[in-house]
């Protein structure tokens, strides 16, 4: 019995908790991609860099507050700085929309043009971020590191395996739940949110109902900016902030959005967890888990790892290909909010 529990704790510690954390970060990222897709109707390749930009500003404000001696221990100062990071990101996307995207909307450019333009914004924002904060690693987490330490868990339960929950993991999951609930409430219960769904469902009829497209687009960008800054900051807190990793995040985020069915917010969230859990599950070494479950003489000699962690990024890619081949519309098909 204890062995089974040990195996479960081992899985929870190395697979489920990190998976839910990473999944929450991807889900928030994918939600942003999906919102842009359903309202502005293009795939925004600049999303990873918008996340990076938001995180950078959150870090700047964190440093500023730390300089002032401001602290909200045991929580990281970054949470205090996050609203300002969000505001900076909102300013960025507003400027970007006015200077770049509005022109293409007015000229009714094709989706491919939008996509290429978004790649352009990706390089520009990426450049700004590297220029402003530098390409190096930034660790900006302060506060108490653990909600529960492995050692405490062992003492508490008497098991030989420990379950550690980092503060950043707790914060990520709780924030994701709050944000997702807010987005759901906004889209389904508020006038503005409903007009956004209407616009995404049938642009022409939205116009005939007197819904102002300029306003819908602006609100969508503001939401996306907030989502991106939150997702980026949570990821940076949990791992560390390094500009180039945010560009790499684009692949799992798009995989998550597409797995769930692009344009569907619920799908984006589910997709985030599917991608994150599979990424960790196929690169996890099951040797010790199986060791607990089988008799000693059958204990595996290999690591029982499907893929080396070096291939982590390939997992999203494989999932993406499988979904596109088998069910291109995603798990929760539908093109609307």
């Amino acid at each position: 019995m204890a062995d089974v529990l040990n195996a479960l704790v081992l899985l929870a510690n190395f697979l489920i908790v990190p998976g839910l954390t990473y999944g929450s970060q991807l889900a928030l990222g994918a939600l942003g991609v999906t919102l842009i897709y359903s309202v502005l109707r293009f795939s925004n390749f600049g999303h990873g860099e918008i996340m990076s930009f938001g995180t950078m500003f959150t870090i700047f404000f964190t440093w500023l507050f730390q300089g002032w001696g401001l602290s909200i221990k045991p929580l990281p100062t970054a949470l205090l700085a996050l609203p300002f990071g969000i505001l900076a990101t909102m300013a960025l996307v507003m400027i970007m929309d006015k200077t770049v995207y509005r022109y293409h909307r007015e000229n009714k450019s094709s989706n491919v043009i939008f996509l290429i333009v978004s790649i352009g914004t990706m390089f520009v924002i990426g450049g700004i971020v590297r220029f402003a904060i530098g390409p190096a690693d930034q660790i900006f987490f302060d506060g108490t590191r653990f909600i529960m330490k492995a050692r405490e868990f062992k003492q508490m339960t008497g098991l030989s395996e420990g379950l550690a929950i980092k503060t950043t993991q707790g914060i990520t999951i709780v924030t994701a739940v709050i944000v997702v609930a807010f987005i759901w409430w906004f889209l389904n219960k508020t006038r503005t949110g409903k007009s956004m769904r209407a616009y995404s469902d049938n642009e022409n009829l939205a116009l005939l109902s007197g819904i102002d497209p300029a306003r819908v687009v602006m609100v969508a960008w503001l939401l996306v900016a907030a989502l991106a800054a939150i997702a980026g900051t949570l990821y940076g807190l949990d791992k560390s902030f390094k500009p180039f990793t945010y560009m790499q995040l684009l692949l799992p985020i798009f995989a998550a959005a597409i797995v769930g069915g692009v344009g569907n917010p619920l799908g984006a969230i589910a997709g985030g967890y599917v991608v994150a859990l599979s990424e960790i599950a196929v690169t996890f070494a099951y040797k010790r888990v199986v060791g607990y479950l089988v008799a000693e003489e059958h204990a595996p000699e290999t690591l029982l790892q499907l893929l080396s962690t070096d291939y982590k990024i390939a997992v999203s890619f494989i999932i993406l290909v499988i979904v596109l081949v088998i069910k291109p519309t995603g798990l929760f098909s539908g093109k609307t909010l």
């Binding site: 006038r191 409903k194 007009s195 769904r197 209407a198 469902d201 049938n202 009829l205 939205a206 109902s209 007197g210 819904i211 539908g334 609307t336 909010l337």
Partner: peptide, 17 residues
């Protein structure tokens, strides 16, 4: 009609202005 929205939401959107 807004196919993904409920009947009531369709009517609400009609009254958006």
């Amino acid at each position: 009609v807004f196919t993904s929205m409920t009947v009531e939401e369709n009517l609400e959107m009609g009254a958006f202005i």
